[in-house]
Structures are given as C-alpha cells and as structure tokens.
Design a protein around this nucleic acid. Sequence first.
RNA 1: GGAGAGAUGGCUGAGCGGUUGAAAGCACCGGUCUUGAAAACCGGCAAGGUGGCAACACCUUCCAGAGUUCGAAUCUCUGUCUCUCCGCCA
Length: 420
Amino acid sequence: MHNINYIRENPIEFDNAMKVRGENPISTKILEIDKVKRETQTVLQTLLAERNNISKIIGKLKSNNEDAKEEMLKVDEIKNKINTLKELQQIKENELNSILNRLPNIPHQTVPNGKDENDNVLYREWGSRPNFDFKPKMHYEIGESLGLINFELASKLSGSRFVVLKKQISKLERSISNFMLDKHTEENGYTEYSVPFLVKKDSLFGTGQLPKFDEDLFTAGENHWLIPTAEVPLTNLVREEILNINQLPIRATSFTPCFRSEAGAAGKDTRGMLRQHQFTKVELVSIVEPQHSEEELERMLNCAESILKDLQIHYRVMTLCSGDMGFSANKTYDIEVWLPGENKYREISSCSNCTDFQARRMNSRYKTEDKNTYVHTLNGSGLAVGRTLIAILENYQMEDGNVEIPEILRKYFNNQKTLL
RNA sequence: GGAGAGAUGGCUGAGCGGUUGAAAGCACCGGUCUUGAAAACCGGCAAGGUGGCAACACCUUCCAGAGUUCGAAUCUCUGUCUCUCCGCCA
C-alpha cells in the first residue's frame, strides 16, 4: 500500500515507478479522487462539529429542564447534509483504496529496469558447474528408476502437479528441511515458528496476495485460504501491532507446505516435481527498522546462500528487474541453482525487501521516541525444499543410478554415504 | 454440537445515554533526590485523519457492520473472535 502523501508530493516519480513495473500512469486520477475526498471531508467535519456543539447545548438545556425544541430542529437540518456527505466521502475513499490496493511497490533505485526475467542481472555466483563422465539425468528419471518418486500414484490421489515420494527420497526431503531449520536457528539467528497453513483474508491482504492475485490461491471452505508461502503467516505475526523498538529486529523461520494453483502456468514445467500445487519450503522473514532493511536483505540473502554452500551446489544470484519482481517487493534477489539434468539454472529462492509496503497494509509499526513508524518487512526462501531435493538428486547423481548424500546431510542418515 | 460469560489505550482494568478520548494500576519517557543505581516523589504518555507556514483547532476511533437517539464505549440487531462448562474427537 502506498503512502498517499508521497503520491501528492511526487506524482511524477510515482508514475515513473509504476511505469517500470508495467502499470499505467495513474497519479492524476488518484489525486483527483483524493482531492474530492478531502474537500468533502472538510465540509463534513465542520458540520459534525456543529452538530456536536448543538447536542451539547441540548444536553445542558434538558438537564435544566428547559425547552430545546429550536436546537433540535437545527440538528435535524444538519443531519440530512451530514448523511449525504458521509456517503460521498465513503464512495471516494473506496474508489481510492481499490486503486491503491492493486498497485505494486516502488522499485529501489538499484533495481534494473526491464520487462521480464530476461532483463534480470547477474549479481554473483558461487562454485562451478560439475563435470559428469556420463549424461546426467533429470531428477524424475533418477527418482522414478529408483522407484522412489511416483507421479502416477499422486495423480490418482489428487490429479496433476502432485507427487508421492517414498523411503529414502522421502527421508531425504525430511533431512533437508531439518538441516535448513537447524542452520537458520543455530547459526543464522532466526527463531523457529510453527504456524497455521490456513489463513484468513486479512492476512493475505497484508502481504499483498489479495485482492489482486486470488486466482493463484487455493481456498478451503468459506473463510480460509491455503498459504502459498509461510511468508504470509510469519509476516502477519506483526499485523496490527505496535512493537517496542527493543523487539526489533525480528527474524523468524518456519517450515511449511505451500499451496499454489499455478493458474498462469498451464503447460509449463509439467514434467517432474519442479512446479507443483503443493511443495514444502523453509521460509525466512525479517521485521526491521527502516534504516536497516537494505543491509538486512543482504544478510538474508547470505543466510539463504549458506544452505547451498553447505550442500556444495553451484548457484548464481540474480537481481530481478523491475518487471519481474513480485507485487510487494522493492528489491528482489533470486538464487538460481544449477540443475545438470536440465542443463539450466532454476530459481530455488527469492529474497525480497518489501520496505513499508506490507507494513502499511498490515498496520505494523514500532514505537520511537515521539511517534509510531511503519516497520520494514523482508522475506526469503531458505530454501524451497522440493527444489533443493531436485538439485541434490541431479548434482549428486552417480552413473549407476544411485545418489550420493551431501556430507552435511549425512548426520541425518546415520552417516550413510549414498541413498541406497 | 449444547449452555453460559466476555471483547475498552503498549499491557491489566473502571466506566449512571450528555464536560469520558475514556478512572486506576503497570510499562515507558523526563525531572527531583542519590557518589551511582534502586526506592520514593513530581510531571508526561492512544491512534488515524482534515484544515493551518505554524502555534493550534476540529473530526473519527472503546472487536466489526447496521440501527435507535438531538447526542452511544454505554441501548437494539447481525457477524467475528476469546474464555468457561458439557458432549464428541486427533
């Protein structure tokens, strides 16, 4: 949600920011509505003050047993005007909100301008592509030939874009999530949370999934939605809170399933478990003071990267361009892991600074000496577990179809060196 | 699912339809005292908005939404949530 004051004072900058995010210039319209709204409000408030005054007089007259007929007639007159103006003001406010609710965050000045993922810029990379003496297989070929990944069974149960894992691969998934949580809580300073996987509308509005992206979400019953990421419950922990300054920074992590309808991705990545309706993820969320959010984004990125470094898997980090960023983001880094089977880099984490954009929607503030200030919120995958599983299978595969277990995970496997 | 109780400022908690934006306490901030701290005492302390260069004035907000009234934290209706008891159950 945008600060209307900022738009009033910087309409051109605002329109430029929207433009690089693929929106039409709209500040003129916003300010027009805003102007009518405020003018109405000013008149309305004068009338309300008048009404309050007369009512007070009536109160006094009545308590003295005096006649108040004249005053009551006056109020009656004012009341009609008040009702009309109230209605108008409400209409204008709703108009304004329905526009503001759907506009994305302003990009940070260091965000490259661009249209889509082709305009993203390499930020840094780590490691190098592994060499294989044989043709590396795709993760699903590995998993299916071992009989440990099964898509037919999943489709029988739930349809397309689901998967059933079994035995060692199932255990591998579990060990990955344990490793990530251990790392983030023991070394990276995050606090582990277990949170609901079903949330209500307000929470999804707070983080920016609603009202614009409802078709990407699954609903459950009348009033609940399945979370598309733990960012939603974790960030909303501070919704409608006024935090004490000494509570900041908050660094929270959680392991949850994520549910996405993948409405716009028909036909994309249909093979394998790269793009599923349900996957698990360890999420990182930071709530910080505004002046610290830029460095916190770098810190969060490092925390996410530390997982792949420990797993010894090659990756690169991309700075997303303005057109490829998510709705709430001011700046986003994607970590793309190398998948030898696919012979491609694929997104495995996305770390975003949402500045005060979500905080305004959530009304999350902290107390400083003389006023309350919106916090800054950040979120990042640390990492997507399903895709980490894919990365391990493809990077650690052996010619005989077996898979080596990354050293850091062996403690979860009784020091076993390979999957079989 | 059945029966009852409740929702008030950062927290706890008062509140006859009209000087209640809201008592009191805690927390927090400033001061006095003290070598320093604690204690004690004094003072300050809700949020959002509109107008104004500003001082400041005004409006709105006591879970949410409708309603009654000249006037609602206080009365009525609906919804949401919380708690207690009973039943059922992971």
